[in-house]
Nucleic acid binder design. Structure first.
Lengths: 336, 336
DNA sequence: TTGAAAGCGCTAACAT
DNA sequence: ATGTTAGCGCTTTCAA
């Protein structure tokens, strides 16, 4: 068996209580005793049993980072940025448990005892039940990325709508009138917000979108490729295409070049997210930056203060999304 | 406070022992009693306290997935595939704790009580101390992706060397003689194995590599871009460039097209990994498939059997890497 | 088939 | 400044 505070107590000739206090750096303990105990602990290679501590302190040292799904619809870049952002903040103090909500058969194992706090990186309303569950259980909670309705939570999200709006205006400013849209995954809030923002941006300039120029997508590379294929088969092609994320934009560009056409020479393409690879695509992608890592970081910080102060604040914070102009959109006059 | 087995016992008019047994589906308990207890537990919305259970059973239900680092050198695709592979296997039975080894100030919190098992997704020898630590502590352990020396462990890895070897042969078969290499991150085992395999492949056909045609890289997009820039500035350019991973290949292609040259028309480019985006690049990338998700899945399965059977097997398994021929490499005669 | 009692390793009142 | 004692919620002998 492994060494416990009782073993240390025996060797130090004190009670295990004293050992516990010494190891927790209690001011009550004589500095010399403290030092002696620390030395013994060190030499015995003692490590505390966190399960025992958790049991009495009612704290798990676990933080959950939950995604709507870890399967389709969650891009590698998204997962990466979210984990990085959260991980940077929590440091050594918590275990970061990563999971797809759709992997749970039941939420039984999700409770205050097992999670000191939860971050939901939400993409669709499919996880609404989970959010309500966590909220009811009064687990400290922040929901990132999509707006939550029906239940009050701390809610941090990118301004998808505003970004798409500004992108539409930019496209129009470049002279485009016949503009197409490859939608994001059906049911995802971001898909909807981006479409709405985009259409609103067009409307702002008196344009409405031809229904035939809206094609469905799944947020993955393949569906961008397929979607663009359909648009190119149209008798009258669009001059510009807004892909609801960068992954689809990459696929879309592929479909264009494969037919011997060029981006942006023959057709302009824009994306959304500003993934790491977007600046390195050929041509470099014009897109909208969505600050996922920043949101994740902010969410983790909020959560930690909730846990420390035992108060959860409930409000919505919108993070700015920024138009990033690169090379994949050209003016209809030629040139960028 | 939350409901415990004692609360259930009181309501059911039995001892808490009986409740414990009933809930764990012990054959000793009368079916009717069992049913009654289950019903009460259900109605009370009982969830077990895993900390208490962990304390007595000496099991944490935690699995660690540790990366050498979560910062530079770990690409989004790599993280994504690793998490997906492991997550698919462990289902609902364990918490998956994700962490960068370089985030630990000390390994104190890593022990048998806190982790039922550990998967190290290792990229460099910088995590050697951690692997040795986990091995000494006798935590069930598998190490993926890089060969481990100096300590016996279960070790699953891709055949980086063989893949690079075959790629070199392919390039030569396409008529290339002046071939360059953009290396992976210094210190990473994979960088070394790929270089060695590649040089061996050249040597097999009597070629040696010009020192000037080897440039350093960091496994990220930017360094691929920079590296290719340096190669293009050479008085006598290579006809083909092997980038040690796909991320760098994407950056490299960018550097080529930015100078008004084309891939593969003016220069051929190959990568390694076969990331999701590689097939969708323009041109589609010729590369070597490294089955990270498959390795992760196999690693997780191994680990679970170790935990179940309380035996750890120690051996090395090499996973095949496959040449994937697409469009970015052209024969020096023209055409693919 | 069930219950009583002990104990997992720790922290925290309450003494002293 | 230190020790005694109880208890967190659970599983598991041992006894009935």
């Amino acid at each position: 068996m492994s060494v416990t505070i009782k073993d240390i107590a025996r060797l130090a000739g004190v009670s295990h209580t004293t050992v516990s206090r010494a190891l927790n750096d209690s001011p009550l303990i004589n500095p010399e005793t403290k030092e002696r105990i620390h030395a013994i602990a060190e030499s015995l290679n003692y490590t505390p049993n966190y399960n025992a501590r958790s049991l009495v302190l009612d704290r798990s040292y676990n933080l959950g980072l939950f995604f709507s799904t870890l399967h389709t619809g969650t891009s590698a870049g998204f997962l990466y940025e979210a984990i990085k952002g959260v991980n940077d903040v929590i440091q050594d103090n918590f275990n970061l448990i990563v999971r797809g909500i759709d992997d749970y058969k039941s939420f039984h194992k999700v409770n205050r005892k097992s999670f000191d706090g939860i971050i939901v990186m939400s993409q669709s309303t499919s996880d609404q039940a989970f959010i309500e569950y966590a909220s009811e259980k009064e687990i400290p909670l922040v929901v990132l990325n999509r707006p939550v309705e029906g239940v009050e939570v701390m809610n941090l999200l990118p301004d998808d709508r505003g970004g798409a709006f500004r992108l539409a205006e930019f496209l129009i400013g470049q002279g485009h009138r016949r503009i197409a849209l490859i939608e994001g995954k059906a049911g995802f809030k971001s898909s909807q917000a981006r479409r709405e923002g985009f259409l609103a941006g067009l409307a702002e300039h008196g344009l409405t979108m031809d229904e035939n120029l809206i094609v469905p997508g799944e947020y993955d590379l393949e569906s961008g490729y397929q979607g663009m294929g359909r648009l190119l088969d149209l008798p009258e092609r669009p001059t510009a295409v807004f892909c609801s994320n960068d992954d689809m934009a990459l696929g879309a560009v592929k479909a264009v070049t494969e037919r011997g056409l060029s981006v942006p020479g023959d057709i302009s393409v824009a994306g959304f997210d500003d993934h790491l690879f977007s600046a390195f695509m050929t041509p470099a992608l014009t897109t909208v930056r969505r600050p996922i890592e920043e949101i994740s970081r902010a969410g983790a910080e909020k959560l930690l203060t909730f846990i420390d102060n035992k108060v959860v604040e409930k409000s919505t914070v919108l993070f700015h999304t920024e138009l990033v102009i690169r090379e994949s959109v050209q003016s209809t006059q030629g040139g960028r």
